[in-house]
Amino acid sequence: MSSEWPLWEIFIRGQHGLNHRHVGSLHAPDAEMAIRNARDVYTRRNEGVSIWAVKSNDITASAPSDKGPLFEPSNSKVYRHPTFFDIPAEVGHM
């Protein structure tokens, strides 16, 4: 049996109520140790107030080859942006 610890992806929420953000990976035997190791490695300088640890194998990622079909359709939809509209200067800030 290989004793190599599985890989975990670590997500940290910073101080100001932002989303958890991926900060890196680490090896740990189980979820509890993953959190402890993440505390030791990724929050050494007040980087966060909450940690998520997810087994790397449990992450489903979009395939790089699907980049075109997945993301290109939104390129032509400029009307989804607020800058698409001309608001008369008289109306002021909107």
Partner: peptide, 21 residues
């Protein structure tokens, strides 16, 4: 910190299909 730097880099290498061990 140096241990952490090693860890970040091993993790980066692992994304290329080699294990840390």
């Amino acid at each position: 910190d140096e241990a952490g730097h090693g860890l970040y880099l091993y993790s980066a290498a692992e994304t290329l299909g080699v294990s840390r061990d």
